[in-house]
Amino acid sequence: MFAEERKAKILEILNTSYRIQVNDLTEALQVSESTIRRDLQDLEQEGLLKRTHGGAVKLENTSFEPTMNEKELTNIEEKIEIGKKAAAFIEDNDTVILDAGTTTLQIAKNIQARNVTVLTNSMLIALELLNNKEVEVIIAGGYARREIVSIVGPITDKIIQSLRVDKAFIGTNGITIEDGCTTPNVDEAHTKSIMIQSAKEIYIVADHSKFGTVSFARIARLDEIDGIITDEEIDQNILEKYQSKNIQIIYT
């Protein structure tokens, strides 16, 4: 297969799966990792994709947001790891906010603490926690976003503003030192920021692919949070850069 044919195939795969990994491409195209990495570098220089640690993602604008189904198919193992790590921060008798998202859903699945109260704007998280007799669930009502199965808007914000919790676990679409935590939807960003204002301790939960990405609406500056819980695939250079700025990175 010639280089141009190979690159066209890479873009075809990326168009259907949103995210690709180098090891999957080497198997699919029967070439070496170094060849795939050169192809990805060439395609990035042409503005056709964005390289990530271990692969690449579609090059989208700041308003792009994948659907819940698309999110559920990406970095599944990493999200499970993050969910277990974050759930360990929840202690007996805690009051907790769980933001809507696929990573926070993994936190809900792994709560081991007793007599916990969870406030959430996620219908999926609420349904999951109904199976846990040690957790009392409060759902913040409001406008339902079909794309990612979350509840946002003025009614949601008013409910969250009236409560105070011990800990909040917030998802994000992008993280940079300069722009902080960002997400494509303005209403989503505002609800997340209200959650942050209502908690004593704030943790961002995000897999390694979110680092270096900027979306349309800011959720919070990094000095407004207590830590970022991510997975062990985070690039060492990124880790050192954030640690040099006294930003706590908790990785599994």
Rank of each mutant, 00 (worst) to 15 (best):
A168W: 01
K210D: 12
I225N: 00
A144S: 11
Q21E: 14
R221Y: 13
T67H: 02
D179V: 01
V135D: 05
I238L: 12
T191R: 02
E178D: 09
K84W: 00
S193N: 15
I80M: 12
Q248K: 15
L73I: 02
N61P: 05
G55T: 08
G141D: 11
H190R: 15
L222V: 07
T156M: 07
L49V: 04
L14G: 02
T62N: 05
I196S: 01
I10K: 01
R6K: 14
T182Q: 06
A140P: 09
I20N: 08
D235P: 00
N173Y: 03
V31R: 04
S150H: 09
L124M: 10
P154M: 06
E91T: 02
S215M: 07
T252V: 09
Y203R: 01
S162G: 11
I36D: 08
T67L: 04
L14H: 00
I80H: 14
E78H: 11
A28E: 09
S162P: 09
V22L: 00
G47I: 13
T52W: 01
I125P: 06
V205W: 01
Q112Y: 00
D223Y: 14
V137E: 05
I10C: 01
Q243W: 12
T102A: 09
G180P: 15
L222F: 05
I250V: 12
V137Q: 04
F216K: 08
E27G: 14
T35V: 13
G227V: 03
A108D: 01
N110P: 10
E91F: 00
Q41Y: 13
N61I: 06
E77W: 08
T213W: 04
E33R: 15
N110Y: 02
E44H: 07
S34L: 11
E147F: 05
E4I: 12
E134I: 01
K71G: 08
R164L: 00
E65H: 15
D226F: 01
N185R: 11
V152D: 08
T176V: 14
A108W: 00
I36R: 05
R37F: 05
E240F: 04
A168K: 03
L43Y: 11
T103Y: 05
Q236E: 15
G171S: 14
N115V: 01
L129M: 11
E70H: 03
P184A: 12
D223V: 08
G55M: 04
S198D: 00
D235S: 10
K200D: 11
D39T: 06
G171H: 10
L59K: 15
Y242R: 07
R19E: 06
I177Y: 14
I249T: 14
A100G: 08
F216W: 03
S193F: 05
R164D: 03
G180A: 12
A189T: 12
I234M: 09
